[in-house]
């Protein structure tokens, strides 16, 4: 049986109104898990709870290892170069000199960043390059669990393809356990092993779908069918 890297158990979260209700899910070692659902249903809140950036009102989250998160908006420090942004976490953990430079170079090239990309400030870099830098900033700390919030949003076709390739390469090489929250099914489904489909707010798990063994067409058909079902049920309610 696969080792569970992240176990979310009966999570309840409310701000002024309930956002997440009784959500349970798990991430197996080396697995790529998708979380899909209608816009504004609470996917990002769920990811933030998984990362430990937000606490659930009820329920628990168990993490087996270090967590790295890539935010939807990149969140790179504008006054630092991409190199300095990637190196931030290493610096905070006391790494300096040649060892730091080697790690930054290694993980930056892994996601497809060149030396000239790394010398840029975020405002001078393209959206795809910035997203890769945000990914490298998380990877450089060698997390066991990677959380990606809408990683393809705001990128053009070329940048999306390039990021997809970089992610595939990382998973093939390192088998990094990953959760991807996304509403872009065409980007997410070719990558994911399993998906959890959430209902509209307050989000509950409507369905868990194992995508392994399905071709892309079948994956899309299956997940779209699940989404249409929950949306029609929500409409009927």
């Amino acid at each position: 049986m696969a080792r569970v890297m992240l176990d979310v158990s009966s999570i309840y979260k409310s701000f002024s109104e309930p956002v997440l209700v009784d959500i349970s899910l798990h991430l197996n070692r080396g697995e790529v898990l998708g979380v899909v659902g209608p816009n504004g249903c609470g996917k990002t809140t769920l990811l933030r709870i998984m990362a430990g950036l937000e606490s659930p009102d009820r329920g628990s989250v168990r993490r087996e290892g270090k967590v790295g998160i890539v935010f939807q908006e990149d969140r790179l420090l504008p006054w630092k170069t991409l190199w300095e942004n990637v190196a931030l976490g290493l610096k905070y953990h006391g790494m300096r000199g040649e060892e730091l430079a080697r790690r930054v170079r290694e993980y930056s090239s892994m996601v497809g960043l060149t030396d000239s990309d790394l010398s840029l400030h975020p405002r001078k870099a393209s959206g795809g390059t910035r997203r890769k830098a945000a990914l490298a900033r998380a990877l450089v700390l060698e997390p066991e669990i990677l959380l990606l919030d809408e990683p393809f949003t705001g990128l053009d076709v070329k940048a999306r393809a390039s990021l997809r390739e970089a992610l595939k390469w990382i998973w093939d090489e390192y088998g990094l356990s990953t959760v991807i929250v996304s509403h872009q099914l065409e980007e997410l489904l070719p990558l994911a092993d399993r998906v959890y489909v959430l209902t509209p707010k307050p989000a509950k798990v409507a369905e868990e779908i194992d995508l392994r063994g399905m071709d892309l067409e079948k994956r899309l058909e299956r997940v779209k069918e699940a989404l249409l079902h929950i949306l029609s049920r929500a409409g009927a309610d």
Binding site: L53, I69, F71, R75, L77, L88, G89, Y92, H93, L141
Partner: peptide
């Protein structure tokens, strides 16, 4: 958002 980002990498 930036504060949270640096916190997430150990600041």
């Amino acid at each position: 958002g930036l504060l949270e980002a640096v916190r997430s990498v150990g600041a």
